[in-house]
């Protein structure tokens, strides 16, 4: 390797190792039985992986898998609804001129700056008043409007849909709604996949909202479930192996999503933000 490539490459590898090491450690720690966890060397694999797995499986009647399914539901349905709402709103904001357009856009975008804490607690109180706290809706509904996704959808719509196509459609007598789902949404699909992925990860990783909203542990997502497992294990390190194995299993789906959907993992914060 030529010398001028050595330093940047070394620095990049240092970053890669720093990022991979904790994941590698969890991978190895999950293979250790309770006894091995505190005695074996940190990076020596143990022999307890399948034991840990069946223990996790048996823990409170397999509640871990319940958490996994809940998380998939929250993230899958939530991201899908959020992407649809963002797509239609972004499209309307990009394509039509109408009274109040700027006001609506600025209001929606202003939501980006509102700290989630200001929202989560009153959302809980309000949902409790209508009897929706501690239900699946309590975690799904507050995440559907995502200001940043609406902004991205508007940028994508403006970039992907040529005005001439819409004019041609109108001359052919297609209605606006029909044009939206036959012409415009298909053209926005690559951008919408990106929006979906980022929302999916955001919901999958969310802790504060479900932590506040849910009391019933059969409705927990993985983050809250593993947290409560850790808290109840604070005085009994015997549960550490369960927490470690659960942590490993809970990040596998997202890592698979990362590796398979690589070309959609891009984000362009600047392109429209500063120019429009």
């Amino acid at each position: 390797m030529p010398r001028r490539k050595l330093l940047p490459t070394a620095f990049l590898l240092f970053g890669a190792v720093y990022c991979l090491l904790p994941v590698g450690w969890v991978l190895i720690a999950a293979t250790k039985s309770r006894a091995e966890l505190f005695t074996l060397d940190a990076f020596t694999p143990g022999s307890g992986f399948f034991g840990n797995l069946s223990e996790l499986n048996a823990y409170r009647g397999g509640i871990f898998w319940h958490w996994m399914l809940n998380t998939a539901l929250y993230a899958g349905v939530g991201a899908l609804l959020s992407t649809l709402v963002s797509a239609v709103s972004g499209y309307a904001l990009a394509v039509y001129r109408f009274r109040g357009r700027n006001l609506i856009f600025n209001l929606l975008i202003g939501g980006i700056l509102v700290p989630s804490v200001v929202l989560a607690i009153p959302q809980y109180l309000l949902l409790a008043k209508v009897g929706l706290a501690n239900t699946y809706w309590a975690v799904l509904l507050p995440g559907i409007v995502h200001p940043y996704s609406i902004y991205l959808a508007r940028v994508y719509a403006a970039a992907a849909i040529p005005a001439s196509i819409l004019d041609a459609g109108r001359i052919d007598g297609a209605g606006e709604v029909r044009m939206l789902y036959r012409v415009s949404l298909p053209m926005m699909v690559p951008g919408l996949v990106t929006i979906f992925l980022f929302q999916f990860v955001a919901i999958w990783n969310n802790f504060l909202l479900p932590y506040i909203m849910l009391a019933d542990d059969t409705k927990f997502p993985l983050t809250v479930g593993l947290y409560t497992l850790l808290v109840s294990g604070a005085n009994q390190p015997a549960l550490y192996t369960l927490v470690l194995t659960g942590s490993l299993l809970s990040i596998i789906p997202l890592i698979v999503l990362f590796l398979t959907m690589q070309r959609y993992w891009r984000t362009d914060l600047s392109s429209g933000a500063v120019k429009s």
């Binding site: 990022c19 990783n205 802790f207 993985l222 593993l226 990040i251 990362f258």
Partner: peptide, 8 residues
């Protein structure tokens, strides 16, 4: 990759 790992 760490972006795929929830904060918890």
């Amino acid at each position: 990759l760490p972006y795929a790992v929830p904060g918890v």
